[in-house]
Amino acid sequence: MNKRRIIWIELLRIFACIGVIGIHAASQHFRDVPVNTSVWAVTNFYHGINRFAVACFVMISGCLYLDRKRTWNLKKLWMRNILPITVAYVFWQVFYALYRSLVNESLKFGSVAFFKRFLVMISDPYFHLWYLPMLIGLLIITPMLWEIVNSKNGKQWEEYMILLYLLFKLFPYTVKAFPIPCREHVMNLLNTVQPQMVTGFVGYYITGHYLYQYGVSKKLEKLIYILGILSIGAAILLCYIRAQQTGTDVQKFYENYTIAAFLWGSSVFLFFKNHVSKIKWNEKQEKRICFVGSCTFGIFLIHVLVRSLLHKAGIDSMMISNTFIAIPIVIVLIFMLSFGAVVLIKKIPVLKKWIV
C-alpha cells in the first residue's frame, strides 16, 4: 500500500482531534453547574457539535485499514499495529492512575490506601483511554472484515452490515432516550438481537471504508448533510429541554451510539472527502499538515493531563464570564500545549515509538 499520506484524511484527523478536545473542554463543568443557566446551555452546545470526533476517528481507521490495496499478515498486524497501541495504553493508563493518586490530597504517598487506590484506577480505563482497547478490538477482527468488504460482493456486504448496525445498534440506542409508552418492553423487543461484533463501533469502521471506497450520490450526500445538521441540532435542543425538565445534565441524545452522532459524523467525513480534498496545497504545506496529523495520537493521549494542569492554574471553560468565548480559547490552549509536548516527546528515541 502506498505510504504517502492522504492530505484530506490528515486534516480530518486533526479536526477530529480538536473535536475530542472540544468535548472534554466543554465537559469540565457540564455536571457541576445548574442546568438552568446560560453556562450549561453553552457547554451543552459545544458538547454536542463536537460529537462528530469519535465517529470520524473510527471512520478514518476503517477507510485505511480496510483499503483493498493493503495486505494483511497476522504477525505484522500484531507487532506493528496492535502492540504499539497496547504499549501506549498500558503506559498512559498507569501514568494517569499514578497522577490521580498523587494529586489526591487525602492519600499519603506510599501508604496502603494510596497503593489500593492506584490499583483500582489501573483496573478501569481512564475516561478518554477507552478508545484504545476499542481500536485494538477492531484491529483484531480487521483481517476478517477486510476479506468480507473486499470480496466479489463486498459493496453489498458493507451495505448489509451498515443497515444491520443502524437497525440493531443505533436505532435501539436512540429510541431508549425517549419516554415512549411501555419503554422497557419496547427495548426488550428491539434488543432481542444484539450483533455486537466485538465492539459497538464496527459499524462506524465499515461506514468509513464504504464512504471512502464507493462514496454516495450527490443527492444522498446533500441529504446526509441536511440530516446531520438537523439531527445534531435537534439532539442538542432535546438535551437542553430534558435537562430543564429533570434538573440534571443530559447528553444521551447525541452520544456516540445515537443516530444523530452517526449522521453528524458521516456528514463531516463526507465533507472532508468530497470538498476539503479539492483544496490544493504546496509541498511544504502538505509536509506540515502530515506532521501535525502524525502527532494527533499523542495529542489525544496527553491532552487530558494538559486540561487538568490548566484547570489547576485557573484556566478552564469558566475562567471568564463569557463561556461561549472561553471554551474555544481553552480548546486552542490545550491543543497547542499538547502538540508542543508531543513534539518534545518525539525527540526522545524510545518514547516516540511507544507512547505517542
Results as ranks from 00 to 15, higher is better:
residue 291 F to Q: 12
residue 261 A to C: 10
residue 113 A to G: 09
residue 47 H to T: 11
residue 32 D to E: 06
residue 112 V to Q: 12
residue 223 L to G: 02
residue 335 F to G: 04
residue 312 K to Q: 12
residue 93 Q to C: 07
residue 93 Q to E: 15
residue 284 K to F: 07
residue 287 K to F: 07
residue 27 S to T: 11
residue 61 S to I: 01
residue 66 L to Y: 02
residue 84 P to D: 01
residue 94 V to Q: 05
residue 280 K to W: 06
residue 265 G to Q: 00
residue 3 K to N: 13
residue 78 W to G: 08
residue 319 M to K: 03
residue 100 R to C: 07
residue 153 N to C: 11
residue 311 H to N: 13
residue 193 V to K: 06
residue 119 L to Q: 05
residue 134 M to G: 10
residue 238 L to I: 13
residue 207 T to M: 11
residue 170 L to Y: 02
residue 87 V to Q: 06
residue 313 A to T: 10
residue 207 T to P: 00
residue 299 I to N: 05
residue 92 W to G: 00
residue 166 L to K: 04
residue 103 V to T: 15
residue 242 R to V: 15
residue 169 K to V: 15
residue 23 I to D: 04
residue 166 L to N: 06
residue 4 R to G: 07
residue 56 C to W: 01
residue 4 R to N: 11
residue 247 G to N: 09
residue 1 M to D: 14
residue 348 I to G: 05
residue 274 N to V: 03
residue 7 I to L: 13
residue 308 S to N: 11
residue 339 F to H: 14
residue 90 V to C: 14
residue 202 V to C: 12
residue 102 L to W: 09
residue 141 I to V: 15
residue 159 E to T: 07
residue 299 I to D: 00
residue 356 V to D: 14
residue 70 R to W: 02
residue 89 Y to R: 03
residue 308 S to H: 11
residue 250 V to F: 02
residue 45 F to M: 14
residue 52 F to Q: 01
residue 330 V to M: 10
residue 333 L to P: 07
residue 128 H to S: 08
residue 137 G to W: 05
residue 347 K to C: 09
residue 317 S to F: 02
residue 130 W to N: 07
residue 251 Q to K: 15
residue 189 L to Q: 12
